[in-house]
């Protein structure tokens, strides 16, 4: 149990450092990347290239193991069902991302700066997720 928590801490640490090194924590770089019809800055495309390279190569290899090191089993989503929820959700996320240049990871890591933009964005993102989860739980109780 303790190993699971400590390893999650290490993953979070490494992940945030990766975000910072990559440029994802600089909203103007994100907007530059999304400005594909203007003065496009394609550099952040390489974040995905690097990430997918490591994860794509490693994933099949890790999944050969009977179970993870510190948990009883692998819990990986298996649904292949495409629905409206997925598309509407991704679209809303894309709009918000395009307005502020923050996605959830960089926004949360940026909270340590106590900067006005990440604080406002982050607090409203967190509150919205809180409300979403409340509604979700209520729906589950009803059904």
């Amino acid at each position: 149990m303790r190993q699971q928590q400590l390893s999650a801490l290490v993953c979070g640490l490494l992940f945030a450092i990766g975000l910072g090194v990559s440029g994802m924590t600089q909203p103007q770089k994100v907007i530059g990347f999304l400005n594909i019809f203007g003065a496009w800055d394609p550099s952040l495309l390489f974040v995905m290239v690097g990430g997918v390279l490591v994860y794509g190569l490693g994933y099949p290899w890790v999944k050969k193991a009977p179970k993870p090191l510190f948990a009883p089993q692998f819990l990986v989503p298996t649904s292949r069902h495409i629905d409206k929820r997925l598309l509407v959700g991704a679209a809303l996320f894309g709009i918000g991302w395009g307005i502020a240049g923050f996605c959830p990871g960089p926004a949360l890591a940026s909270l340590v700066t106590l900067g006005r933009a990440p604080l406002i964005f982050g607090i409203f993102m967190i509150l919205t997720v809180l409300i979403f989860e409340r509604i979700q739980n209520k729906k589950e109780r009803v059904s």
């Binding site: 993953c11 490494l14 994802m24 952040l44 990430g51 490591v54 510190f70 819990l75």
Partner: peptide, 23 residues
């Protein structure tokens, strides 16, 4: 830097799978 950061992000995600079996 973007590529290096991406490698670190991929590595942290892979470690999450190795340790905790999660995405």
């Amino acid at each position: 830097k973007a590529f290096l950061g991406g490698l670190l992000i991929g590595l942290s995600a892979l470690l999450m799978l190795v340790f905790n079996g999660r995405i």
